[in-house]
Simulated assay, not measured.
Amino acid sequence: MKNWNRHNAIAEFVRKRRNENKMTQLELSDLTGVGLRFVRDLEQGKPNLMTDKVNQVLLFFGHTLTPTTISDETRRNLGA
């Protein structure tokens, strides 16, 4: 496996919500209409996933991707 950030906010959110709902990754995949591999990659923090599919999963939990303001310090750390 590649060195993905398993602790990114989206990966942790989806993993936590899925576990709170006592669902397997396969069940989440079936209920959201995305592939099992996509769910696994999402929960493991793969950095380059399709945003429409990420939103499919997030919408299941009542959330969506949105632009968020970041601090100047965070921006500097990103190299922007």
Rank of each mutant, 00 (worst) to 15 (best):
V54S: 01
M1P: 15
G45R: 10
R40Q: 13
G45T: 10
L78V: 02
L59F: 10
F13C: 01
D72T: 15
R15W: 07
G33K: 07
S71R: 08
R76P: 01
N19H: 11
T24P: 03
T66D: 12
E73C: 05
R40P: 00
V54H: 00
I10E: 04
Q25C: 02
Q25P: 01
F38C: 06
T64W: 02
T51C: 03
E43D: 05
G33W: 06
L49W: 07
S71H: 05
F61W: 08
A11L: 10
R17P: 00
E43A: 07
Q25F: 09
V34H: 08
E73W: 08
T51Y: 06
D52Y: 10
G62F: 03
T69Q: 09
P67I: 15
I10S: 07
Q56H: 03
K22A: 10
K22D: 09
T74K: 14
V57E: 02
D30C: 09
R17F: 07
L65K: 08
V54L: 06
D41T: 00
K16E: 14
P47T: 02
R6N: 08
K53T: 09
T68S: 08
L31H: 11
D30H: 12
N3H: 14
V39F: 01
H7A: 11
R6Y: 12
D41N: 13
R75I: 08
Q25Y: 01
E43F: 04
V14L: 00
N5Q: 12
F13T: 03
R76T: 05
R15G: 01
Q44K: 15
E12T: 10
R17H: 15
M50T: 13
N48Y: 04
E12W: 01
T64H: 07
E27F: 00
T66S: 06
T69V: 14
A80W: 14
Q25V: 01
F61V: 05
F38W: 03
L49K: 11
E20L: 11
R17Q: 10
G45Q: 07
H63A: 09
Q25W: 01
M23N: 05
G35T: 14
T66L: 06
E73H: 14
N48M: 02
R6V: 15
S29Y: 00
N5F: 09
H7I: 07
L26Q: 11
K53Y: 12
K53Q: 09
K2Y: 09
E27A: 12
I10M: 03
G33R: 10
A80E: 14
E73Y: 13
W4E: 07
R40E: 08
S71T: 12
D52A: 07
M50V: 14
V14W: 00
L36K: 14
L65Q: 13
K16Y: 12
L42K: 07
H63W: 09
A9L: 08
F13P: 00
D72W: 02
V14F: 01
D30V: 09
K16A: 07
N21A: 13
T66M: 11
H7S: 14
